[in-house]
């Protein structure tokens, strides 16, 4: 690893958990190197004095984008559910969420 201080394997393991990506120990090692190389370059921003510069989140100033409160036809439910990995009773089907029996 080129820069052990930019990000540690423990931090990558934590980030992988937050991002819901299952990784093996070897893969965590691999991504730690990858992320460290990129984050090392992010340090070039550290020296910039940006205290008086406001953040810019969106390139073109548009405000209060509303439409009339009129219902329009939705996409077809059956067409949507036909593309889901599992569906039943007109709903998406998922494994147990709270640990109860399926």
């Amino acid at each position: 690893m080129e820069d052990a201080t930019a990000i540690s394997t423990d931090q990558v393991a934590h980030v992988a958990l937050l991002a819901r990506i299952e990784l093996t120990a070897d893969e965590i090692e691999h991504y730690t190197g990858h992320l460290a190389r990129v984050l090392e370059h992010a340090r070039e921003l550290e020296d910039l004095d940006l205290a008086d510069v406001p953040p810019l989140a969106h390139p073109y100033p548009l405000r209060n984008v509303f439409r009339d409160d009129v219902a329009s036809p939705p996409v077809d439910r059956d067409e949507v559910l036909a593309q889901a990995p599992a569906a039943s009773g007109g709903q998406f089907e998922v494994p147990p969420v709270l640990g109860e029996e399926a």
């Binding site: 990000i7 931090q11 990558v12 980030v15 992988a16 937050l18 991002a19 990506i21 991504y31 992320l35 990129v38 984050l39 992010a42 921003l45 550290e46 910039l48 940006l50 510069v53 406001p54 953040p55 810019l56 989140a57």
Partner: peptide
């Protein structure tokens, strides 16, 4: 995805994502 998650995570948000948005204004 992991880089982005890290840049937004507690303790790093201001140093990475926040700072980058200010550079965007520059």
């Amino acid at each position: 995805i992991m880089l982005g998650t890290f840049a937004l995570s507690a303790g790093y948000y201001d140093a990475y994502y926040g700072k980058a948005q200010r550079v965007r204004m520059l």
